[in-house]
């Protein structure tokens, strides 16, 4: 179920506080973290730590690194969704500012960093491009004494990575269809019922995360 999970180790997570500094990703040749390496190897866990640094320390360096990776991607997404470059630039800055302000709401046992940023960019697209009200379900956020467990964080981050890899393995035509659906180039009746997306495992992982969250909220 968790391909490659054996390569991930949690070392020294102790007490109530999860310390993301101590979540190590060990690969056969251990890489010293440089930004260049991060983009090519396993950025996800690292970006989780960036968000933690922003939330806890208002770390501007961490923010700058996140910004240089994600802002150009958010901008490209908004342009493909129909924004002109000027509006896309402005909206991207607002998306990144929201990321700073809402860093405390990010739950790494329920979403990857790119997933979370995608939802903020998607919301901005509805607000600024489509100019309609945006009904959304209530937030389910953990209380101070219910931090997510490191094992859950690793498992979800690994599932997210598996899903991304599975998407890159889809036939070109299918991948193209999914892209067009997300960029709003298909009406929803054009989206085939069968997307071919392998969502089964990540769905059950996310369901488990919600069950745990509901228990801690009671």
């Amino acid at each position: 179920m968790f391909d490659g999970l054996e390569m991930l180790q949690v070392s020294g997570a102790s007490g109530d506080q999860v310390n993301y500094d101590r979540i190590e990703v060990s690969t056969p040749v251990k890489q010293k973290a440089s930004l260049l390496h991060l983009e090519n190897s396993t950025p996800k866990i690292k970006w989780v730590d960036h968000l933690r640094r922003i939330q806890v320390n208002q770390d501007q360096q961490a923010f700058a690194e996140l910004f240089s990776y994600f802002a150009p991607r958010v901008k490209a997404f908004l342009i493909k969704s129909g924004a002109n470059p000027g509006l896309a630039e402005e909206c991207t800055q607002e998306v990144m500012a929201t990321l700073w302000h809402k860093a405390h709401l990010f739950d790494p046992s329920r979403a990857g960093v790119s997933t979370w940023i995608f939802t903020i960019a998607r919301n901005k697209k509805i607000d600024a491009l489509r100019k309609q009200r945006r009904p959304e379900p209530e937030d389910l956020t953990w209380g101070p004494e219910a931090e997510p467990e490191a094992a859950d964080v690793l498992a979800l981050q690994q599932e997210t990575k598996n899903l991304s890899e599975a998407i890159t393995r889809l036939p070109e035509q299918q991948r193209d269809l999914i892209k067009r659906a997300y960029y709003g180039d298909l009406s929803h009746s054009e989206i085939a019922a069968e997307t071919g997306l392998p969502l089964g495992t990540i769905k059950s992982r996310l369901r488990l995360a919600l069950v745990k969250l509901r228990q801690t909220m009671k």
Partner: peptide, 8 residues
């Protein structure tokens, strides 16, 4: 949402 994240 995770699919959207990986497209991003």
């Amino acid at each position: 949402d995770a699919v959207g994240g990986s497209l991003l």
